[in-house]
Amino acid sequence: MVQPLNHQPETPSQTAGPYVHIGLMPTYAGNAGYYDEEIGVSPISDGARGEVIEIVGSVHDGTDWALRDALIESWQADSAGRFPGQDGADPAVSGHCRFAADAVTGEFTLRTVKPGPVPSRYGRAFAPHISLWIVARGINIGLQTRIYFEDEDNEGDPLLARIEQRPRVDTLIAKKIGEGRYRFDIRLQGEGETVFLDI
């Protein structure tokens, strides 16, 4: 027998199901006041440095129907590209947010500050981006993707550079729809399918 590796595999994922909001966003589920303080209500607090922006969008299935039960988490750096906990990071940026598709319209809104470029381990910085993690009924393992911005310099971003089919890069880029406002739609399947990550 060879030596044992002493590794164990990751616990397998399961779908978050239709009632994920009970656990992660009690107020949204109709159970306001369950906790004194809910987690991920906003990624920023008053005084956060940088440009405050609003990103709206929806999550579409393979029939182009917008999901009404999706829950999304975002994670991002502050306006200087520093993550919470790193030296000099903006104390008014928690970086983490939970938001849900509206039960009637399917639209979500993320209000945050625009992140700065993030250095990579190998020198070339990542263009400003927000990481997303999408869970819902019918999604067996959370889907990871990123929001980039059309009015930033995305040339040379190490992740975008790795997308072989260049038209698909566009699926990760939020479109400006007004001053400080962007639209980012997520397509789970089919035409215009969003690039999802294994990272």
Binding site: F83, V118, P119, I139
Partner: peptide, 24 residues
């Protein structure tokens, strides 16, 4: 429900970076 909610295209695999290696 997974039929219309699962991607058809393969995932883009990359080594993790600061965005994945930090967290709240």
């Amino acid at each position: 429900t997974s039929v219309a909610r699962s991607p058809h295209q393969p995932l883009l695999s990359l080594e993790s970076g600061p965005s994945e290696e930090t967290g709240p």
